[in-house]
């Protein structure tokens, strides 16, 4: 626990000082902002998949719903941003709850397929529902007047991300986290211990969707333009790759994974096909040699405790 705290403290200081380091260069701030938004999303997915054992291959759809909610509420209803941000979270959480309902009955591959379908359907709906979403042309959103510059919005995003990290860590420490992990490890035993498995599965989806919706809202403001293409299957798979690469069931691992997979495309996109190759190779190597993710290299405590190397099953 202590080492995790230190890691997060270190990351936060680095993030807050970062704009100074890069001389307020807007490109570098843009990349860092993206990283933070993906980190929120990766943590949310890890809550669901790493801790709760419920796989979701359509998580970008939640990001899309959060982003579009913000854009539509701003453009059509003129709601202020301090209202949009939580509302986007809440609306996405409601959708997450609805997706969680079938998840109570589905598990493993079947749940994967269901969430895959969800991830494919949402961008498609947004493409076709032009009246509301602007279709292919997308929507433009201005930053809130309070944080109108890239740098100030970057700071705002960082603070929100830190709050969310703190919330998730606390959530996992208590009875909630224990119930999640119990469900992942053995549903029968969890049920026999009095954990209400169906309730917690839907809750897991709602909570994960809530934070992802907030990330989506931040994304819409930060990037300033959203279109269905921003939330396609690729994003879902990359976020899944982030948590596998960084470390399943690890919050700092999610952050590390988000960092690496946000940086790689920025560095390697000049060479076509390079990003995908590196990402794929990194994933395979991680799964083979570091089943607990890259973060296990940093967690000395884990290393000592590591008594077995059995890979954490995504289907469990």
């Amino acid at each position: 626990m202590k080492i995790k705290r230190l890691q997060i403290l270190f990351i936060s200081i680095l993030l807050l000082g970062y704009p100074l380091l890069v001389g307020f260069s807007s490109y570098f701030i843009y990349v860092a902002g993206l990283f933070i938004i993906y980190a929120i999303m990766a943590m949310s997915l890890n809550l669901l998949t790493g801790f709760g054992g419920q796989i979701s291959i359509g998580h970008a759809a939640f990001l899309a719903i959060g982003a579009y909610t913000t854009a539509i509420l701003t453009l059509k209803l003129g709601l202020p941003f301090w209202l949009n941000l939580p509302l986007s979270g809440v609306i996405t959480a409601i959708v997450g709850f609805l997706i969680g309902l079938p998840a109570v009955r589905l598990s493993g591959h079947f749940l994967a397929i269901a969430t895959l379908a969800f991830g494919l359907a949402i961008p498609e709906i947004m493409l076709k529902w032009e009246g509301l979403t602007g279709g292919f042309a997308g929507l433009f959103i201005e930053k809130p007047s309070l944080f109108s510059s890239d740098t100030s919005f970057y700071y705002f995003t960082t603070v929100i991300a830190l709050i969310i990290t703190w919330l998730i860590l606390n959530l996992l420490k208590g009875n909630f986290g224990r119930a999640f992990v119990a469900i992942r490890e053995s549903e029968i035993a969890a049920e026999a211990m009095g954990v209400n498995v169906s309730l917690y599965k839907t809750l897991m989806f709602s909570i994960s969707a809530f934070f992802t919706g907030i990330a989506g809202s931040l994304y819409a403001y930060f990037v300033g333009f959203i279109s269905p293409h921003d939330f396609n299957m690729n994003i879902s798979l990359i976020v899944l790759a982030m948590i596998v690469l960084g470390g399943l069931a690890s919050i700092t691992g999610s952050i590390l994974g988000a960092f690496i997979l946000t940086i790689i495309p920025q560095v390697a996109d000049r060479f076509p096909g390079f990003t995908i190759t590196i990402t794929g190779a990194a994933l395979i190597l991680t799964i083979l040699f570091l089943p607990n993710g890259l973060i296990s290299l940093f967690n000395y405590k884990w290393k000592r405790k590591k008594t077995e190397n059995k890979q954490l099953s995504l289907e469990g």
Partner: peptide
């Protein structure tokens, strides 16, 4: 339950704590 069904990736302590979950 049958076949013990302990939570394999949790420590002994955590397993016991989950028993007092409610």
């Amino acid at each position: 339950p049958e076949n013990r069904q302990v939570f394999p990736k949790l420590t002994v302590e955590e397993n016991l704590i989950i028993g007092s979950y409610l």
